[in-house]
């Protein structure tokens, strides 16, 4: 799948409280969460973001709490994918489980500026910065995780395994 959108660039160690503050965790409605997405990192983000836009960040994006509300809020805001130098473990896992595309690519992040138009090929991991015309290659996913994502997330994956009687439930 090929995605294209404009970059919103953030710094290092963006935590899940910045992605979706706990004061909004009394709901898990994607639309409601989206209204406060990234609010404590950039209060204007919920107004600025447009469908298909891309979040880019430095190292350790999504550190902190296990709240799945974080990828849900990002997806709800219409963000098509997140590119970072690295992701915190639970956030990474949550993205695979809920089907929010994420890519690790330090070179692409270093070279991009806020507002750059990007084209991302999720199948190959190729990132093209349409401003500079530079191309970058993101780290590929291990096949097992790719399989979960191809099924549209963990629940669909479990459903299929259950139907094939691979797990007792």
């Amino acid at each position: 799948m090929i995605l294209s959108g404009r970059v919103h660039k953030f710094g290092a160690d963006i935590d899940t409280d910045a992605i979706i503050p706990a004061r909004y965790l009394n709901t898990f409605d994607p639309g409601e969460l989206a209204q406060h997405c990234m609010e404590d990192a950039d209060p204007r983000f919920p107004e600025k973001v447009q469908a298909g836009d891309i979040i880019a960040a430095d190292k350790n994006f999504g550190c902190g709490s296990s709240r799945e509300h974080a990828p849900i809020a990002i997806k709800g805001a219409g963000v098509s994918c997140v590119i970072a130098k690295s992701f915190a473990r639970i956030f990474y896992r949550n993205c695979i489980n809920v089907g929010l595309p994420i890519l690790e690519c330090s070179e692409a992040v270093d070279a991009m500026q806020d507002g750059d138009p990007l084209q991302v090929d999720l199948d190959t991991g190729k990132i093209i910065n349409l401003r500079s015309k530079e191309e970058y290659q993101a780290m590929p996913f291990p096949p097992f995780m790719q399989q979960i994502m191809d099924k549209g997330g963990l629940i669909n994956y479990v459903k299929e395994r259950k139907e094939r009687d691979e797990v007792e439930v």
């Binding site: 902190g64 709490s65 296990s66 709240r67 799945e68 639970i90 896992r93 949550n94 489980n97 809920v98 997330g153 963990l154 629940i155 479990v158 259950k162 797990v167 007792e168 439930v169």
Partner: peptide, 30 residues
């Protein structure tokens, strides 16, 4: 545990780690 501080139980010599809600859902089933 669907809570990042699930790692607390490592103090007892257990392997305990935080996950998100979907992992919890799949684990409740399987």
């Amino acid at each position: 545990g669907a809570d990042s501080h699930t790692c607390t139980y490592g103090a007892l010599g257990a392997f305990a780690t935080g996950v998100g809600s979907t992992d919890m859902a799949a684990a409740m089933a399987t």
